[in-house]
Amino acid sequence: MSSKKIIFVLLNLYFSFSLAHAQYEIKPEKGYSPQIGIMVNMLEDLKSRITEMTSDLNQEETDYLFDDKANSIGALIMHLIATESYYQVETLEGRTWTEKEEEFWAVASSLGDKSREELKGKPIKYYLYLWDQVRKKTLEGLKKKDDAWFAENVDEGVNNHWVWFHVMEHSANHMGQIALVKNRLPK
């Protein structure tokens, strides 16, 4: 067999094998109602991709600002966690942040000059661990809810489904920013 044929067969086998084992499906996570399970699947997918792209960053990379208007990767992840925490207590616990929670999350809630100044000096593992803790609580709370709750309005024209869609789209949006910052890291 010629080398071109061998390469063709090997490439064909590789792509056939990789496509057969691909995980590119949105399916409801087990233990959740169908609609919530789909949202959980998407939330977890985004979180795992952000974690994968950032978990090996050193301190300088975690805190890097490529200009005076940029946010660091650490600050962006902290912002994602704060957003999830906010909606978690609002929708799953039916309350607002306590004074202590507000104090902890306030800087990360709105990115800007203050967050650029204060959200630095913590290793990437700190942020990822904190996100794991908040997500664990989110997942526990969502397991106790059903699709009827998901469709309920939390405000006029805003239902729980939209709120958690917003958490998901927020993650996707900031994942792009994280990728941009990562691409701008000094070589």
Rank of each mutant, 00 (worst) to 15 (best):
T83G: 13
T83I: 08
E84K: 04
E84Q: 12
S85I: 03
Y86I: 11
Y86T: 14
Y86R: 08
Y86A: 11
Y86H: 14
Y87P: 07
Y87T: 10
Y87L: 05
Y87D: 08
Q88M: 14
Q88C: 07
V89C: 09
V89D: 04
E90L: 13
E90R: 13
T91N: 14
T91H: 01
T91R: 04
L92H: 10
L92R: 09
L92V: 10
G94S: 08
R95N: 11
T96K: 15
W97N: 14
W97I: 04
W97Y: 09
T98I: 12
E99Q: 14
E99C: 01
E101F: 05
E102T: 10
E102I: 02
E102F: 11
E102W: 05
E102Y: 09
E103G: 01
E103T: 12
E103M: 03
E103L: 02
F104V: 01
F104R: 01
A106Y: 06
A106T: 12
V107L: 00
A108R: 00
A108L: 00
S109C: 07
S110P: 01
S110D: 07
L111T: 07
L111N: 04
G112A: 07
G112M: 04
G112C: 05
G112V: 01
K114E: 15
K114Y: 04
K114T: 14
K114R: 12
S115T: 06
R116K: 13
R116Q: 12
E117L: 09
E117F: 05
L119R: 07
K120F: 08
K120C: 10
K120H: 13
K120T: 15
K120R: 15
G121T: 08
G121A: 04
G121F: 07
K122V: 13
K122W: 07
K122Q: 12
K122E: 14
P123D: 08
I124R: 10
I124C: 03
K125I: 06
K125F: 00
K125N: 13
Y127M: 11
L128R: 11
L128K: 09
L128M: 04
Y129T: 15
Y129K: 15
L130I: 07
L130C: 01
W131Q: 12
D132A: 15
D132K: 12
Q133F: 04
V134Y: 01
V134T: 08
R135C: 10
K136E: 13
K136D: 13
K136L: 11
T138V: 15
L139I: 13
L139G: 08
L139R: 01
E140C: 00
E140P: 03
E140I: 14
G141D: 09
G141P: 04
K143Q: 14
K143P: 09
K144C: 03
K144W: 06
K144E: 15
K145G: 01
K145I: 04
K145Y: 00
D146P: 00
D146Q: 00
D147S: 02
A148Q: 10
A151E: 11
A151F: 05
N153I: 07
V154N: 03
V154I: 14
V154E: 08
D155S: 15
D155R: 15
E156W: 10
G157E: 09
G157C: 12
G157F: 07
G157Q: 03
G157P: 10
N159R: 03
N160C: 07
N160Y: 03
H161K: 10
H161A: 06
